[in-house]
Every structure is written in structure tokens, then in C-alpha cells.
Design a protein around this nucleic acid. Sequence first.
DNA 1: GTCGAAATCACCCAAAAGTATGAAGCCGAA
DNA 2: TTCGGCTTCATACTTTTGGGTGATTTCGAC
Lengths: 161, 161
Amino acid sequence: MEQPSKSFSLRTILLYGLSLGLLLASFQAARYRFLLLEHSEELYFGFIAACFAAIGIWLGRRAFSTKEKTPAPLTAEPLQGAELEKALAQHRVTQREYEVLLHIAQGLSNQQIADTMFVSLNTVKTHTANLFSKLDAQRRTQLVERARVLGLIAPIAQKYD
Amino acid sequence: MEQPSKSFSLRTILLYGLSLGLLLASFQAARYRFLLLEHSEELYFGFIAACFAAIGIWLGRRAFSTKEKTPAPLTAEPLQGAELEKALAQHRVTQREYEVLLHIAQGLSNQQIADTMFVSLNTVKTHTANLFSKLDAQRRTQLVERARVLGLIAPIAQKYD
DNA sequence: GTCGAAATCACCCAAAAGTATGAAGCCGAA
DNA sequence: TTCGGCTTCATACTTTTGGGTGATTTCGAC
């Protein structure tokens, strides 16, 4: 099954490793079979060097390719009233879960949320777990980001210190 | 529903590959000592290949690294250039820390950040710890919220998937 | 009256995050 | 050249989170 996209997948790394090994092996094999080319070691060296350098550069670029992506200026504004409720209903986020979500977005810990909501820590955990599955997130930072993109919570909290 | 973040880190794999290459090389070297100049070229091939792969990676990272360039617009529209840098300087947030901050805001785990930034998990932890003290936060959700209020990161970050 | 959704809580386990401390290499400024 | 900031990484430890399962109660709908 496909996973949350890491900009740099494990598959790529493995592929790179395999390529390394295969290239190396084929060069070694080539040396055994075509002894005629023995006199052109320098060419071999240069070729190998160029190949691996190119692969390395490609790999290095690949690692930072995410930052070259198009900025994608999606500016989701906070949904209001009925619109918000509709969005919440779409993702089957309940009232209590939404409250927890807001508190998480404020940067509170589960224990703090439990305290302010007058429920137990376990209850908060349950709510957050439900939010994770409903909004397809694995971490609370990801949850907040998702909720923000979906317009469930405001872009910026209104409190300045 | 399982995710790959628990798998081996990119760094580990690369190190493993390099170790393999070095092992191979030393093995060849051992043979070289006993069998004289019999297979010295193989050793050279492997060594050169490994060297240039490493150099290539280094070059690729250098060339496309955010270190020497603008912080890479991961976000939609944060503060503008000079303004942003001023805000960052005000809180003594360094380049590397800022990159980590952006990744955290994206909802990435420390391990994922370590992979995409080509550093170890411990390094990411250090950066985050510095961010916590510099932006006066205890949790990463709080960190993101603070950064958002301060205008260090955009209201809505980039999509990921 | 039963059924299901919502809310509440518990327990356990694993993974991730956070804290503290130390240290090495690099690089630019004094 | 010495000094300090940045980056890197390590080790060790504690706390928080996340995941899974199961259970109880309430309350409205069928």
C-alpha cells in the first residue's frame, strides 16, 4: 500500500544502491570479458567517475526537489457558520472532537486539554485518535495542517502577546 | 495504514552502502597484498566509483542546498524577503532551524525531516530544541502556532501528497 | 424496545517527542 | 590566531503521543 509521500522515498534509495552495485559489477565483468580494453583504463576511470558523479548529483537534487515545487498559493479562508458545519459534517467530525482539534491547534498538550475540558486524559486521546482517522493524519502537527487546509480552523489565531 | 517512517533512515542506508563499498575495497586490498598486482584495477574501479558517487552527492547537495540560496518557498506567502529575515533575526532563528520549522509545520515527523534534510535524527532534535527555547514553546504544535503568529510561516502551508 | 452514534474512560504497548549534556568541525570576525 | 556562532552528532533519560481494544452510559431514531 502506498504511504504518505515522503519527498524522498525508500524505493529511490534502494534503487540508487542497486544501481551502484550493478554498475560496479558490470564494469568489473566487462573488464574480465573484454580484455582488449585493458589499455584504456583511463577512459574507464573517467567514465565511471562521470557516471557516479552524475548519479550523485541527481540524487542530491532529488533530495531537495520538493523545495523547487510551485508555490501553490492556496489561501483557504476560515469557513463561517453553516459552511463550517458543513465541512465538519463532511468529515464526520463531532462537536467534542472539534473542540479538541481547536485546542490542539493552540498548541496544548493532551493533559492540558483534558484539564480545560474537564474530561480525562484518555478521553482526549480517544477524540484525537478519532480525529486522526477522520482527517487522515498521523501526528497532531499534521492534523492541524490538514484542518487548516480544509478550512476547519482559522489560518492564524487572534492572540498576540 | 502502516507507514514507512519506522523503517531505516536514509542516512543509515547510505552509510550502509558506503560501508559495503569500503569493505569490498579493503577486501580487494587484502587480496592485492597476497596476490600482488593481480587484481589491483578492480580495487581502483570500486574505489573511484565510490569516491565519485560520494563527491557527486556532495556536489548535488551543495548546488541545490538552501544554505546558499533563499530559504525555498515551502510556504504560500509568508512575510516578504527582508521582512521575514528581520523577523527571523529578531528571534535568532538560524537558516537550518528555519528549515526544520517549515517541515514541522508541514506535519512531518523528526525522522522524516532528518531524511529529507540529510541529517541525523539527533540533529533535527537539536534544531527543534533550539527552536523551542528561541520561540518559547514546549510542544511542536505550540511552536507552529507561535511561528504563525509571528509571521514566520504562512497561514496555510503547502500541500503534501 | 432496540440500534447506533456520541461521549466517556481504562489499560497496555510502542513510537515519537522532548530534555540535558557533551563534543567535534567549520567558518568568519575580532 | 583565538573566540564565538552554527551545524552536526551522540548518549541517556523522561514525557508525550499514537494505536489498539474494550467497556459503559446517554440519547435520539427507527
